[in-house]
Every structure is written in C-alpha cells, then in structure tokens.
Design a protein around this nucleic acid. Sequence first.
DNA 1: CCGCCTCATGCAGGAAACTGCCCGAATATG
DNA 2: CATATTCGGGCAGTTTCCTGCATGAGGCGG
Lengths: 251, 251
Amino acid sequence: MLTSQRQTIILDLLRRDGQVVAKSVAEEFNLSEDTIRRDLREMSAQGLLKRVHGGALPLSPDLPDFSTRRTVSSEEKRSLGAYAAGMIRPGQTIFLDGGTTTAEIVRHLPRDFAFTIVTHSPTISGELEHHPTAEVILIGGRLYKHSMVATGASAIVAISLVRPDIFFLGVTAVHPAHGLSTGDFEEATIKRHIAQCSVETYVMVTEEKLDTVSPCHVVSLSAISGLIVAASVPDERLKPYRSAGAAILKT
Amino acid sequence: MLTSQRQTIILDLLRRDGQVVAKSVAEEFNLSEDTIRRDLREMSAQGLLKRVHGGALPLSPDLPDFSTRRTVSSEEKRSLGAYAAGMIRPGQTIFLDGGTTTAEIVRHLPRDFAFTIVTHSPTISGELEHHPTAEVILIGGRLYKHSMVATGASAIVAISLVRPDIFFLGVTAVHPAHGLSTGDFEEATIKRHIAQCSVETYVMVTEEKLDTVSPCHVVSLSAISGLIVAASVPDERLKPYRSAGAAILKT
DNA sequence: CCGCCTCATGCAGGAAACTGCCCGAATATG
DNA sequence: CATATTCGGGCAGTTTCCTGCATGAGGCGG
C-alpha cells in the first residue's frame, strides 16, 4: 500500500460517507492512527479536505439533501432501516409506526414493485409523497404532537379495518423480562392494537435501547415475530432475549 | 459522530425548525445536555446563532420561511392566509383543506388561544407540529399523492363525525356561473362533503383563479359563506361574483 | 558489498480537545 | 415567593493530537 494510494482512497471514503474518522480508517488499513493523522494533516495542507478533531470532513459542506437526511440517522439506524425494507415483498401491506427509527425504513423502501404502506404518522406519509409505487393509507385521529402520530378511539377503529402483513414497531425500550415499552400510555395502547391486527410484528432496536424499560408496557417479547438489531451488537447482549423466546434478526 | 459535524447539524435543525432545544437535541444525539450547551455557547460566540434560555434561535429572526420556500408563496397568498387566520375565534373548530393556499393559513394561526384544526392533509398537520395551542385532528384514508390529502370512503366517514365552525376550502378555479371547481373527481367529492358538514365555508382565491373553470365541480357560489380575495383585486372583476350571490371579504 | 541517505512508519510523552458529572447561580413558571 | 429548569464554571477521565525520536526498508554511489 503506497502512501499516495492510501490518500486517494481516503478522499473516496470522504466523498462516499461525508466524513472520515481517523481511528476507523487506521483500523481499515491496519496502520497506526498516527500515519492516518499524518495523511489527513498533509491533505488538509493541500486543501483537499477539512481537518477536524477526530477525523476530517469534505470542504464543500455537503449536498443539500444530504444534511437533512443525515440529521438524525446514525449508521446503525440506517442499516436497520435498509434491512427492514428488504423484508418487504411485492403486494404486501406494511404498517409503519411513527418515530425516527421507522422513518429510516421509508428511505430504503423498494421502488421496483408495488406494496401498501399504512401509517398513523403524517410525517411518514409525507416522506412517501414522491415514492413511485407505494400506495399509502393514512390512519386518522387526534394528533399526539410529541411523537406526531394519530391517536384516540377513531385511530383504533381505523386500524382495526386493516390487516397488515408486517408491522414495523418502534419503541423506546426493550428488556428481556419487561418486553417492549414506550413513554406514553395512549401511544402504547395504539402500538399494542396495531400489533394485534398484524400478521407479523418486527421491532427495530438500536443498541442503546437494549436492557432498558420505559413507563408504559406495549407487548411482551413473546408477542412479536422478531427483533431487528445491527450486526455490530455482540451476541452476548442478545442472549437473554433469545432465552426469552424472541427471534433475533441481525443486519 | 464528529464534534464539528454535530454543530453543522445543529445549524441545520435551526434552519429547519427555527429553533433548537438543548434537551431534545441532546436526546437525539445521545449525548449529555452539557455537551450540547457547550456547542451552543461556542456557536453563539462564533456568531452562528443566538443563545437563549433552553436552547438557541437563528440570528435573523426568520429567514424567508424554510417551509414556505418550496411553495413559493406570493405576497397575495400570504395576505389571504393572514386574513383567514384572523377570522378564527377561541375554541372554534377549523377544517383546513389541503393545498398551498390553505397551508398559508397555518403560518399565521393565532398562538395566544386554543382552537382545533381538522385536516385530511398530512402536510398541513406536519406544519402544525410545533404550534403551541392547536389541537389537531387528522382525517385518515387512502392518500391521494398528487395533492397529498386523504380520500376515499373512510375519509368521508371520518369527516362526517366532525362539525367544523369554519371550513377553509381550496380550489383551483372560481367562476361566476360554474362556481368552484378542481382537477380531481374524488377530491371534489371530498371537498363538497366537508362543506356540507361545516357551519361556514370560505374560499381563499388568488386573482389568477378568478373566471376560470376546472373539470370537476365542487359546489356553487351560493353554497359558500364567502370568497376571500386580496385587497389589490379590482372591484370590477368581483362584480359578477357579488351578483351571483357570493359574499366577498377583502383583506 | 558497504555506507549513507531518504522516507514511511510506529512509539512515547506531553498538550489539547472532548465529554460527562457536579454544584452554586441564574432564570423561568405558577 | 416557591419550585423546577437551565446555565456556567470547574474537575476528572478519556480520547485525540502533535512533536520528537527510533526503526527498518529501500535507493544510490562508492
């Protein structure tokens, strides 16, 4: 591996990801961080990138939609979203919960076949405006502004009328004994109801949600079809969940 | 997550929402509030934002609305929106149609008293996320993507259950003889139904819509409470509408 | 072949940056 | 006025950065 070659690759990484982290690049090349840092320093002096603490950023701030897309989604959430979207088959009806985690699914939805998305989140439905093949069913009701989803009796009634093939549930906490929970009572009730109406229910779980509990119980682990977790999560942490009867899907 | 990256994202959030709250940003990034506060302090020192208790605000009081940008709201629409919003009284229930004209009302809604907004447009409801006093009822149904409103039988049923004090109707064409019309048949049906369920119906009309006709009839002029037009429109053009029995409200 | 030079690399140690926690003060809220 | 947040500064632990130095691999002339 030649030095200049390595620097070209670093620039590629920068273009692709919008950032480079000295530590992870060093790991990737199996070199010391010092070497990478030297590279970054040098390239910064040549005006090829902008050096920042921890790594480097491109000189041009980013593509316009890149920043909005990036705002909330971590790499982990992105991989979960892509995996979940990959589970969808032509013609299926999918219920998408509200929240940033499930919103990530929308950005990876297939565009080469037709399916139906049901959601009680105006935010989610808004993101689907320009999707070419998705039929969208919006569930109405009283809008709970904190998480921007429709709630109340009318939402429950409307949900009862659909039978989704898959429900992608979003929660704030997952625990081996206490199951899935969230912060608002009304929301928890709605989520539970959707799960009951759906053939399968999957939960996207970022690592920091594991082994935590929120005030309002949604459903137990045995009631769902599986947890979707990032491949980077160690098996050790997932063991209690397997024991509790939950299927684990790793991205 | 690099520190400098986080700060640019905070600026994005600021542009998008017009404010940032230290606590919620901290949650979003999974970092302590201290760190976010430090960021805000630092950026404030750099003159990138204005630090306030609880979070930060953009320096320029309100740059030409981020949300407005995509709709290119003219001065005319803005004045119509402000006038319509001024008609709302405390405790009333208001039905907002979809479309860019009625969206302009949202931006001028009073913030010093409570009222209820009913809408079948996820876009409209999305804009109300940060409104402090508005209770929002979302009407669900099959999403008609072209104009981003819920349609279909279930929407009709849901609409029947409310009785708004005022319906702000949006149409594409207004004509003295042919009344109000729009481009889609299903949408026209929905609009007619909402008008029937409402105590009063007002239509915001920009000048270029006058004396035009679209394919699908909504209601006749006699069925509505009044047209809202900009003060700049000459009385001469409005005469036929007065003759047809329509009340005219000038901004 | 040998000595010398250059250069990339890794390592050590001190400096700087980042982050979380804590506490007394300042600020909202009712 | 009482209470709850939020703020700012200070402290400690960790990470990242930079400088200087040693090593080792090549290149080159003698």
